[in-house]
């Protein structure tokens, strides 16, 4: 039994290592106190979550609280997030902070498409999450999640910096649970861009995603020379089973209409 603290520490370390080391990994004696064995996912996610750079992107009142979160009292630097990048190419996280209007949605979707993967979206406040107090109005869309995928929602009008920090910690937890083998951004081929919405008097119905995809990609294929040439952006036909579902729903609806109330 060794007695000095350094020796004790080495002993402990070796015990830990032995649990993971197979016979084939020969760790030299002098390195055994310095080597730690872990999974690739863990070290990869740890480094990603510890330096997650938010997009410097403010919309409305929530942006003020976002700035307050980054400033002296709440100090976002504790989470390695103080580097707010104005360029979407350099940022990992988009904090949608404020009221999203129909005029702004195309810009937001375009910025989201420009962000490099892996990318995350945090919907901050009532407006970005569900339209907020102006939802009844004629210009505000009821939630950014109709247009781009959202990872974490933070409620509040506006959320306090504490609430935002809690949301960010939740996002970190989500990042820690991901695995390189299953995440979508290491699959083969490029991921599809989110269709950029065009202003209209109404907002789109998420159940129509398939139709929208067909319509928008068809339009893209028709107009863009390069995209049309590669054939990647050809219109996707509606699958037969979906068509059958639609037909069944229509028949059901017709039958329901005929029945007396």
């Amino acid at each position: 039994m060794t007695t000095t603290p350094v020796a004790q520490f080495s002993e402990l370390k070796r015990e830990q290592l032995n649990r993971y080391l197979h016979d084939r990994i020969q760790v030299p004696e002098e390195l055994q106190a310095n080597v730690m064995v872990t999974t690739l996912d863990k070290i990869y996610n740890w480094s990603r979550k510890s330096s997650m750079w938010p997009l410097l992107f403010g919309l409305a009142c929530c942006a003020i609280e976002m700035i307050a979160t980054a400033a002296s009292r709440y100090d976002l630097a504790r989470f390695g997030m103080e580097v707010m990048r104005p360029s979407p190419r350099q940022s990992d996280l988009m904090i949608v902070s404020g009221t999203v209007t129909k005029k702004m949605v195309p810009a937001i979707v375009r910025i989201y498409n420009q962000m490099a993967e892996p990318r995350y979206v945090l919907s901050m406040g009532a407006c970005a999450t569900g339209g907020g107090p102006f939802k009844e109005g004629y210009t505000v869309v009821s939630g950014i999640d109709k247009y781009i995928p959202v990872d974490v929602y933070v409620p509040g009008c506006p959320p306090t910096p504490e609430a935002l920090l809690y949301g960010l910690i939740k996002l970190h937890e989500k990042v820690e649970r991901q695995s390189i083998t299953t995440v979508p951004w290491y699959r083969k081929g490029a991921s599809e861009a989110v269709p950029v919405p065009v202003l209209g008097p109404d907002i789109f119905d998420p159940r129509k995603v398939q139709v929208i995809k067909e319509y928008t990609l068809g339009a893209a294929a028709a107009t863009r020379g390069a995209a049309a040439a590669t054939g990647r952006l050809q219109p996707q036909p509606i699958p037969e089973d979906v068509k059958a579902r639609i037909r069944a729903a229509q028949a059901k609806y017709r039958a329901m209409k005929k029945q007396p109330a």
């Binding site: 119905d205 339009a219 639609i246």
Partner: peptide, 16 residues
Amino acid sequence: WEDPEFESLGKQILEA
């Protein structure tokens, strides 16, 4: 599915 609004919905989302 039969509502006329449903037919036109979604077509407002166009390629920029």
